[in-house]
Nucleic acid binder design. Structure first.
Lengths: 336, 336
DNA sequence: CTGTTAGCGCTTTCAT
DNA sequence: ATGAAAGCGCTAACAG
């Protein structure tokens, strides 16, 4: 500490070590050459003073921050949480720091954009965006300034690199599974695009595939997870569907809860399927029939794609599409 | 952009708007007064140039970053994810930015300390730490330099402020519930302190309380969630316990999965209880008997406690203990 | 309300 | 291998 109580700077360390501040800088940045003697004098002085490097000042003058910005829509959900952690790990492996911005269910579009801009203001060298809400055009604008990779959701804009799971393949495959087990009339929960781009497209794929297979579809549009009891009640009254396909595991659980409240057994009376296959809802104790997304792979690849743009000049934007796998559980049963 | 391709600065904006760079600074920082005319000239020039404020430079000269650092052990788990999001929301409400560092199951102690130090180097004004792993003494050292609040786990050090749930109360209450339902012999999964401070103390509280009530306890120490099948098998062979108390909901699910693999029904044959009560495992569709921690309250209060230390000088370190509530589900049944 | 002048703490040439 | 000096982009007094 200096007399004034503010934290010590390299100047203080230099004075105490009896060297110039340049030497202190070299010791901490690892650039240039420093004699063993000087190095140890600096380190001792720093330790005695309790010196901590000021990362902002450092990156200000070097104009490099060595930092990646990650934005996830809602880190409290297993899906985004997993993505966030995988990305952090990968970034750490390759020597980058990460600053994270996360919203929550309560964040609206403007809030998300503001959070994204904060990240840019913090001089992150690249941006990893995970949100089913942000529109493509909003991203294109920011991608022009900062290298940006979208992860976990389909992205069509040419200039934006992305890594995501094939929602159509997943939705169709899961629909195949349900149809294979003999269901001839199925309720499909279909969120709107404004709620989630990924969920709406996978749900549409489910419905489309079922129709192709000659299965009758009872679509329920724009349901919010809190209001799932109503549609479920109606389903039971009309009494047609033998299965409900939900656009996520969380929604599937909500449906199961609503069914149980009405005394309906799963899967004996009605089958239910989910989507995501992420811990902890993938537990065999629950046995949810679902579609597992390879989130770890998505996270890793997204980081790697971003680094490729950073290090190796500017490779053209690319779109990596990954496939998931069927998680056949106990909640979708064969119809007799 | 300037000729050299680097992003524009306030100087470029000032030149284009025909004012001094101070005016640009004032417009963006909101300090000092600016005429409507100047403001609009600046804003137009900035927009034309695609100017983005450099937050690092700004906080360098103001020596205020307006940023809080949050460290969570593993954001991919609902527990820490929820805490992280609540804190972010609260910080945003009160006008602070947040930079997050998260590890994962693979982070060891050194990794966590390094991540924590990164946050300090980034000049966060305060630190919110959520980890059952970091030792008290490691935190005390850092708390001397940066205001620090520990959230979500008991903290005894006098100099560190903390907000957490009463693990002993929770563990005992849950044990009461199990005993009330007639269980006279119970298996308790007890992780070691090195695995998690919170889980080990709540599990010990469960066991202690059961013993007080004259219930026979079969303790299983230091189990890792991956190896839960062994203890479960042994329990079934000895055939004594009518219930298993797990130290977390996730562990409870693992136990249920292991039981199911052996063809044992829950709760008809064996009862199982968890701990945490956090979404999505709190779904009525699962019906897990658990102890719900008021995580949102913990997160909010932790932020507020930190702000109190920041704004209002240096109030003495305080420890806020919150109580949870019993989540009576269907996985613990009455014994006849 | 506006411009001028110093820095914030660190990294870099460029000398030595 | 080391030091001196010139900024990085912005804010903060201080004068007008």
């Amino acid at each position: 500490m200096r007399g004034d109580g503010r934290p010590p700077t390299i100047i203080d360390v230099a004075a105490r070590a009896g060297v110039s501040k340049s030497m202190v800088s070299r010791v901490y940045s690892g650039r240039g050459s420093v004699s063993a003697d000087t190095r140890s004098k600096v380190l001792t002085a720093a330790a005695e003073l309790g010196y901590v490097r000021n990362a902002m000042a450092a990156s200000m003058s070097s104009t490099r921050t060595n930092t990646l910005g990650v934005f996830v829509r809602d880190a409290s959900t297993p899906f985004y949480g997993r993505l966030l952690v995988t990305m952090s790990e990968r970034a750490a492996e390759v020597g980058y720091r990460v600053v994270v911005a996360t919203g929550s269910g309560t964040f609206d579009l403007d809030d998300e954009l503001r959070a994204l801009d904060h990240l840019v203001e913090m001089q992150v060298e690249g941006l990893l965006v995970c949100s089913g809400l942000l529109s493509s055009s909003d991203l294109v604008i920011r991608a022009a300034r900062t290298p940006l990779v979208v992860a976990g959701r389909p992205e069509t804009a040419e200039t934006v690199t992305s890594v995501y799971c094939d929602e159509v393949h997943g939705g169709r495959s899961l629909a195949d599974h349900v149809a294979d087990l003999g269901h001839r009339r199925v309720t499909v929960l279909q969120p709107g695009e404004h709620q989630s781009l990924t969920m709406s497209s996978r749900a549409r794929a489910m419905a489309d595939r079922l129709l192709e297979l000659g299965v009758t579809v009872d679509p329920v549009r724009d349901v919010r997870i809190e209001d799932v009891q109503g549609p479920v009640d109606r389903l039971l009254e009309s009494g047609g569907s033998t299965a409900v396909m939900a656009p996520s595991d969380r929604d599937a659980l909500a449906v199961m809860a609503a069914l149980r409240r009405r005394g309906v057994r799963v899967p004996e009376d009605v089958s239910v399927s989910g989507y995501d296959g992420v811990a902890p809802l993938d537990s065999p104790a629950i046995g949810l029939t679902s579609w597992a997304q390879p989130l770890r792979e998505v996270g890793r690849r997204a980081v790697d794609a971003l680094l490729a743009r950073l290090d190796g000049g500017a490779p053209a934007a690319q779109h990596q599409v990954l496939l998931g796998t069927l998680q056949a559980g106990r909640t979708v049963a064969r119809v007799h």
